[in-house]
Design a binder for these strands. Structure first.
Length: 731
DNA sequence: GTAGGGTTAG
């Protein structure tokens, strides 16, 4: 510990002064450093000897290390002969403050940059995900015959992560050929990159090949995180135990990594126990651990209450911690507005949002009225350093397409500075959700041509595009391609897509067979897909099986009860329908009330079925009455099978027709048509799936009114135009 | 004077 007495410093000789400054740097003691700096001006500044040059350069290093950029810059500007050390320090300081353009300017001024200068800049580009620049610098380093080291390679590998596994494989080769595979840091970077590209097997291989002696703590932590992120939580926990048994040092990074394992297992109880243990050791106040905890509770506890408690315990929240909170809010659909509040609050307390903050807040906008997304988009443009980040653009593409605005999604996709796997995934998914399977598959083929590696998520979108349009053969082809050509082991989601694809196409037997033979225990999603297919094709027997399996897994979901009782009712099996309704009441299962909303002039108007609360409801009813006449003239026949919700026998056909007319999506559409100018497209969002009668009616409404009407339901988009729907009635 | 491990988009 550095102990000082200002008065005695006046007598220091230059060498002692230098040693003191060194100590300040290694201890990051800003206070003592500043005092030394003041003294330096009084006594040494005028000399022009080596030690003065040394000292003045080291003040830049001191301030850079202590994170005070302004002081670092002042010290740097006051240094008459800046050496490469202080250049490197100040470049690093700017890079860490996301001011890469200034870092680059300074780099270009260095008379003779050394390897550390290059490494620093490469890391800065890696931080930004700019793989081209990082590779360019690597080339320069090699041309200059500077001997590459582990810093160079781990930086380059980090920068190239996210550009497909092919590039990582090439770099891995380069690492092995150059003999850099003895560097733990380089192997760690390779390991993490493989994992992030979706290749856990390769990551594990790297880890094993490192051997116990070749690993450091980072290797263990990286492997634990990799397993956690690939939902192999129990492997992650086993690694942690192994680490503890071996007496390796366990730090906050390890704790955070273990938390990702609990999160992946959705093991809230285990995570909470671990939390309790960490409270005893005080780890829970650490930001790394905190973000792990917040992630755990936001994903597993069904709300943000616990997260807020964790957040409040943290002594000095950092940017990642704030981002994790924003992310938590944005993943809880009904808390999207809170995500925005959190984003604003973070800025109020002085944090500058980074790409991750924007990605999270933009994704929250997918669940909010479109105008909010537009505003946040404007914000990303204003904060220009982020504008060019691929990740933010990807999030914007996803947001616009989820908000039903495929045109703007495409515009961003076409103008963004570069594409990676996620960019293509977002756009492909956008087209898939809108039922534009041809565009979706065309983009996928383009992706392959351009050598942008698909990942497991790409195939989810591709398969769902096939499912949404009934392309059974294509779906089968892509499912096989994913295994055989790309070596991806299909995950539960891929199997669900196949169940959906086959089931909807009427191949119920094949769909059921997939459930029986897939290498996972089928979850509610798989059974729901089969149930939906049974409903479409009227197979009550199989529906009973699917529904009961669903209920076993998710006892409080109303979905299986409602679907099955509607099926009974449709088949005229009233008693069974009633029994099911009774059972539902007895078990306390509540149906989610259907509601639809529309944004007009930045105000959201929500409608529930047979709504009478809206101030303009009379006008809406009047409009619907008129519309009904026109609809009937155009050949609309109300499909009263969709009005079977309660007391079926008691209601007359006329009453059923009236009920249908006042479904929430029809009310919202009518309101939209009343409130907007001729020709303006309208967007309605529904919290459940669109009803079949509404689907039919809105098709005709779109023709009568000459409007483009988009309805987003929980499953996909229906874009009605000139009497047709983009789903081509396949839903 | 410089890396690799916690959060994110599909």
């Amino acid at each position: 510990m550095l102990v000082f007495n200002y008065h005695s410093w006046q007598l220091l000789n230059p060498h002692t002064f230098r040693n003191l400054l060194k100590a300040c740097i290694s201890e990051r003691n800003l206070l003592a450093g500043k005092a030394l700096h003041a003294l330096f001006f009084k006594s040494h500044n005028n000399n022009n000897d080596n030690i003065t040059t040394y000292l003045s350069n080291h003040f830049t290093i001191l301030y850079s290390k202590c994170g005070t950029l302004r002081n670092a810059r002042t010290a740097f500007d006051l240094t008459e002969h800046p050496n490469v050390f202080s250049y490197n320090a100040i470049i690093n300081a700017y890079a860490k403050h996301s001011l890469l353009h200034i870092a680059r300017q300074l780099f270009d001024q260095i008379p003779q940059p050394d390897l550390v200068s290059y490494n620093t800049l490469i890391s800065a580009y890696a931080e930004r995900g700019d793989c081209e620049q990082a590779l360019g610098l690597l080339r320069v380093v090699r041309e200059k015959c500077l001997a590459i080291d582990g810093f160079t390679l781990s930086g380059v590998i980090d920068a190239c992560c996210g550009r497909g596994v092919g590039l990582i494989r090439q770099l891995h080769c380069f690492v092995v050929m150059g003999g850099f595979d003895s560097y733990a840091s380089v192997n760690n970077a390779i390991l993490t990159s493989y994992s992030k590209e979706g290749f856990l097997g390769e990551a594990k291989r790297v880890f094993h090949e490192m051997g116990v002696g070749g690993r450091d703590e980072v290797s263990w932590n990286s492997m634990i995180v990799a397993c956690g992120q690939h939902r192999e939580g129990s492997d992650a926990l086993a690694l942690f135990c192994e680490m503890v048994m071996m007496g390796l040092e366990v730090d906050m990074f390890t704790m955070a990594s273990v938390l990702t394992a609990f999160t992946s297992l959705k093991d809230l109880a285990g995570g909470m126990q671990f939390h309790a243990k960490m409270i005893k050791s005080g780890f829970h106040r650490n930001t790394h651990v905190g973000s792990g905890l917040i992630d755990l509770y936001s994903k597993c506890a069904g709300g943000m209450l616990e997260c807020r408690k964790v957040f409040e315990e943290i002594t000095a929240p950092d940017l990642v911690l704030w981002n994790t909170m924003i992310s938590g809010y944005s993943q809880n659909e009904d808390l999207s507005e809170d995500a925005l509040c959190c984003f604003r609050k973070m800025q109020r307390v002085g944090f500058r949002p980074d790409d991750c903050s924007f990605v999270c807040v933009v994704s929250a906008c997918s669940n909010l009225p479109p105008s909010v997304g537009n505003q946040v988009h404007a914000l990303t443009i204003k904060s220009d350093i982020l504008y060019n980040r691929v990740s933010v653009n990807n999030a914007l593409v996803a947001m616009y397409s989820k908000c039903g605005n495929l045109q703007d999604a495409r515009k961003i996709f076409d103008t963004m500075p570069g594409h990676n796997t996620v960019s293509l995934n977002s756009m492909i998914a956008g087209y898939a959700q809108h039922g534009l399977e041809a565009e979706s598959l065309w983009l996928f083929e383009l992706m392959l041509q351009k050598d942008i590696a698909p990942n497991n998520i790409t195939f989810i979108s591709v398969l769902s595009a096939c499912a949404h349009t009934g392309k059974v053969e294509e779906g089968q082809k892509y499912f096989n391609m994913m295994k055989e050509k790309f070596g991806f082991e299909p995950e539960a989601e891929h199997y669900s897509c196949m169940i959906d694809l086959l089931g909807r196409a009427g191949k119920l037997k094949e769909a059921e067979r997939i459930i029986e033979t897939m290498p996972f225990n089928p979850g509610s999603i798989e059974w729901a897909a089969l149930l939906g297919a049974c409903k479409k094709h009227g197979n009550v027997d199989l529906a009973v099986k699917a529904a009961s399996e669903f209920v076993r897994i998710e006892p409080y979901s109303a979905v299986p009860y409602v679907v099955l009782s509607n099926m009974y009712a449709s088949a005229g099996r009233w008693e069974e329908a009633a029994t099911l309704k009774k059972l539902m009441r007895e078990r306390g299962v509540k149906k989610t009330p259907g509601c639809s909303w529309i944004e007009i002039d930045k105000k959201v108007h929500v409608f529930v079925a047979e709504d009478t609360s809206h101030p303009m409801i009379n006008k809406i009813h009047e409009y619907m009455g008129e519309m009904l006449k026109k609809l009937k003239q155009a050949g609309y026949v109300p499909d009263i099978r969709w009005a079977l919700m309660k007391d079926e026998e008691a209601v007359t056909a006329e009453e059923k027709e009236r009920k249908l007319l006042y479904h929430s999506e029809k009310l919202a559409v009518a309101f939209g048509l009343i409130c907007t100018e001729e020709g303006v497209p309208i967007l309605v969002v529904k919290n459940l799936r669109i009803c079949g009668d509404c689907h039919n009616a809105i098709k005709i409404i779109s023709a009568i009114s000459g409007r483009e009407i988009t309805v987003r339901d929980t499953h996909r988009f229906h874009c009605f135009k000139e009497g047709q729907c983009s789903c081509r009635d396949y839903w």
